[in-house]
Amino acid sequence: MAETIQLAERFPFPFGRYRDPHGDASGEVFREEVLLPAFRRSNDTVVVDLDGARGLSPSFLEEAFGGLVRRGVARAEVLKRLKIKSALDPSFVETINNYVRAAKPA
């Protein structure tokens, strides 16, 4: 069964790449504390709903989603299991998929 993550619930204004210096709303924090655990809990689809977030900083998105590949999740698995929901502005689906495709394993 798919797990759905509402980004804006915990990250109303997601911003910045790393915890240091950008703090608890950074892509690194979202990946490590929310996204990666969801990927590891099961083999099901992980849906991330972006609607409701007030800003979506590109470095946040790259670090969160491209960072999955650098943290050892196979790119093909990310592309298969990750579903981005962004009804208000679907252009971010393309942005995120591009980040995942371009990310290289560490």
Partner: peptide
């Protein structure tokens, strides 16, 4: 400036 730019980009897309 980055916060302003990302908020503007978000609003523009929506």
């Amino acid at each position: 400036l980055l916060r302003e730019a990302t908020a503007m980009r978000r609003r523009l897309g929506i």
